[in-house]
């Protein structure tokens, strides 16, 4: 019984934490839903501890030691989560690269604004470039 209470307290605490994060808009919609789902699972699991649901399920699946089922599910979930984060990171990096490049190009262009003929004719450009003092001052 004590274990049940402990599990319930922990999962409720986690639930409150994610609720707080969502209310403060620290989490985005999709992640918010995911974490709410995780909390719900944890609460359910804790609340049904006395009913031996876990034992029955693991017996049904063919796992002799019930806690192993939890570990297995947890590990699979975390692997999937990390993979998803990797994808998100790659996506963000690609977007960031484009932004950095654009910032570089825009900055270079705005530095050249005083002489608006910038790059129209590369041949005629070279004397103009020498006069482009704003670029030198960095």
């Amino acid at each position: 019984m004590r274990a049940t209470i402990l599990a319930l307290v922990v999962s409720l605490g986690f639930f409150l934490l994610s609720l707080y994060a969502i209310r403060r808009q620290r989490l985005r919609e999709r992640q918010a839903l995911l974490w709410m789902g995780v909390c719900l699972m944890m609460v359910l699991l804790s609340a049904t501890l006395p009913l031996h649901v876990l034992d029955r399920v693991s017996h049904f699946v063919g796992i002799a030691y019930p806690p192993d089922l939890i570990l297995l599910v947890a590990v699979l979930f975390l692997v999937a989560l990390v993979f998803q984060q990797s994808l998100a990171l790659a996506r963000l990096t690609a977007k960031q690269t484009v932004l950095v490049q654009e910032i570089g190009l825009l900055t270079a262009r705005s530095d050249m604004q005083p002489r608006s003929d910038e790059t129209s004719t590369p041949g005629a450009d070279m004397p103009a470039v020498d006069a482009m003092n704003p670029l030198r001052d960095r």
């Binding site: 950095v100 490049q101 910032i103 570089g104 190009l105 900055t107 270079a108 050249m112 790059t119 070279m126 470039v129 020498d130 482009m132 670029l135 030198r136 960095r138």
Partner: peptide, 13 residues
Amino acid sequence: AARAGAIVVTLPV
């Protein structure tokens, strides 16, 4: 580079 007459595009990071 700018003094040598090139267009310089500086990436912030």
